[in-house]
Simulated assay, not measured.
Amino acid sequence: MQNVIETDALCKRYGSHLVVDHLALTVPEGCVYGFLGPNGAGKSTTMKMLLGLVHPTGGTVRLLGREMTDANRLALLRQTGSLIESPSGYLHLTARENLEIVADLKGVPHKDIARVLDIVQLTNDQHRKVGQYSLGMKQRLGIAMALLGSPKLLVLDEPTNGLDPAGIQEMRELIRTMPTATGATVLISSHLLGEMEQMVEQVGIIDHGRMLFEGPLTELQRHSKGALTLRLLHPAKALPVLQANGLPTAAVGEDNTIALPPLRDDLLAGLVQALADSGAGVVGLTQHTRTLEEIFLTLTAPKEVG
Rank of each mutant, 00 (worst) to 15 (best):
T60M: 09
R290E: 10
R210E: 14
E214P: 00
K152N: 06
F35G: 03
Q2D: 12
T229M: 07
I205T: 07
I101S: 10
P28A: 12
R115D: 13
V32E: 02
I5D: 02
D118Q: 15
M196G: 03
V282S: 05
G270K: 08
L25Y: 01
S190G: 08
T300N: 07
V272P: 00
D21R: 03
A181E: 14
S224M: 13
Q287D: 10
L64N: 06
P109T: 13
A95Q: 01
V4K: 01
K225L: 12
H17I: 12
T257H: 05
G253F: 08
L25M: 09
P240S: 11
R290N: 14
T298Y: 00
N124L: 13
E254S: 12
G30M: 07
T249K: 11
E173C: 11
R222S: 13
P159C: 11
D157Y: 03
L117P: 01
G270L: 08
M199T: 04
T7N: 02
I295F: 05
D112R: 11
T249W: 01
I258R: 02
L141I: 11
A166T: 02
N98F: 09
G37F: 02
I143V: 15
A41M: 03
L122K: 02
G183P: 11
N124W: 10
L242R: 00
E304H: 13
K106Q: 14
V108S: 09
D21Y: 01
P38A: 12
S82H: 07
G107Q: 10
R78W: 08
E97I: 06
D266H: 14
G215F: 10
L217V: 13
S44V: 04
A276V: 13
G58H: 10
R140S: 01
K12C: 01
A146H: 03
N245I: 03
L230R: 02
H127F: 12
A41E: 04
Q221L: 15
T289S: 14
K138I: 04
T7V: 09
V203A: 01
T57K: 03
P165C: 08
G89K: 04
V54P: 05
V283E: 14
H191G: 03
D266E: 15
T69E: 07
N3D: 14
K43E: 03
Q132M: 14
I143K: 06
R73E: 09
L51W: 02
L163R: 01
S88V: 13
R96N: 11
D207T: 00
L297P: 00
L25P: 00
G136K: 04
M211Q: 09
E170I: 00
L239C: 06
Q169G: 07
A71W: 09
L212G: 00
L77N: 03
A280Y: 02
